[in-house]
Design a protein around this nucleic acid. Sequence first.
DNA 1: TCTTGAACCTCACGTTACGTGAGGGTGTAG
DNA 2: CTACACCCTCACGTAACGTGAGGTTCAAGA
Lengths: 250, 250
Amino acid sequence: MARWLRIGELAASCGVSIRTLHHYDELGLLRPEAQTEGGHRLYGEGSLLRLQQILTLRTLGLSLRAISELLDRPDFDLIASLRIQQEVLRQRQEELARAQQAIADLLQYRLETGHWDWQRVTRATTAVRQGEEGDVIMEKWYSPEQMERFAKVAETIPATEIEAIQNEWTMLLADVRANKHLDPRSSEAQALADRWQELTERTTRAYQSDPGLLQVIGEKYREGAFEGDLRMPQQDDFAFIQRVLDARQA
Amino acid sequence: MARWLRIGELAASCGVSIRTLHHYDELGLLRPEAQTEGGHRLYGEGSLLRLQQILTLRTLGLSLRAISELLDRPDFDLIASLRIQQEVLRQRQEELARAQQAIADLLQYRLETGHWDWQRVTRATTAVRQGEEGDVIMEKWYSPEQMERFAKVAETIPATEIEAIQNEWTMLLADVRANKHLDPRSSEAQALADRWQELTERTTRAYQSDPGLLQVIGEKYREGAFEGDLRMPQQDDFAFIQRVLDARQA
DNA sequence: TCTTGAACCTCACGTTACGTGAGGGTGTAG
DNA sequence: CTACACCCTCACGTAACGTGAGGTTCAAGA
């Protein structure tokens, strides 16, 4: 166990002001774990982790009060929270992509026609404002049920299996994308489809402990929520595999 | 020219509160263009466009005062500003991607070793805080020089040419990525390299009116700013083309 | 041991960007 | 001409800190 961190060190290493840490102390959001004789605040490494949570949740739009209540909830699970943060950050990226697309659309119309399309303007305006409400995140992702889901997955599936599956998907997707031009009837294409089906089954098996989670993920796919994230299978990829499987029937 | 918008309509169509519009009126940031006899505010379509700017710049972290000064600057160019916003939104996405990656890293280490790596924790903590400073954006993108650059490009390059070039790049990149496995000496690979060089030259020619802009973009490439954005050429793509060109010498 | 400068402490008021009523006028459909 | 949704102007409240003022503590060096 390393040394104590003084307030200035903690602030510097996390990129916040000392006043901010004072404020969090006042609110009871981040209390120093000890103090010197003279009353200087001393923080341990656990504080660092808690501060990471606070700052991430804050940039996701939660109020300090909401964060405080969340972190002190008895069912709060740090690992689950980190997974949720990954997920919400990914979603935020897609919202930004949509906003950017809306502006591109607006610009293109203007440059082509010479005047503004007011509907496109409102679309661009509302698009950029998406996902700034913290309460939504709170309800959607940090509800006790979701929290439990994510925690349960972490408990019941060995970490090595999750990682292995992720790696397999990465490799398979790379292969698929590099071979989209293949004839669906070719043996290489068929082999890819086989790997796809096996890996799908293995994934399903791993997440079996909570069928609800799989369902949630399935819905998100249908919403197109993962479109644009190249670590995930895309419409394109599905389409290719489908073509290969169809060729199998004929 | 369509009807006037009453304050409630404008608020609803842009997803902000009436109070917010009142506030912007007080600040002189967004003044109604007319009023009824009774003193009700009436907004025209120009207001919609100005509001789009305000809200986008606000989510990018600018203060209302800064936005006000920016929008009233004599050299302010709306088209240029929209282009800049696209660019900054893209950058913001990458920052989020990096933050997400930092959390993934943190999680993976924890799941593998069973304890926390404090350096990874601080990395995750600082990563999520990147790009929340509005002043940086102001200096980096809305400096008079940058503004002029973006405006000049819009003036001197026909919109159709810009769009055509973007389309060409999209198609070329798709082809390159689908054919990375090709032998660099094959005629198909050589053809791709030819298209790459022609398109590079065409792009350079288009942006010729402002060599400074090309230089800025070049620097950003070297910073890796576009890595992860698949609409732009990636390290991978450059590497492939380079291999093909090298094969040409031998 | 004593000094000295950086780092820290506690008030306490200031700021930004609105939220939230209170109390009262306006617009227009029937 | 009335009913009701919509709008007006104060004016105080709030969240999340910023910004000194004035004094104390810490740790390294003489």
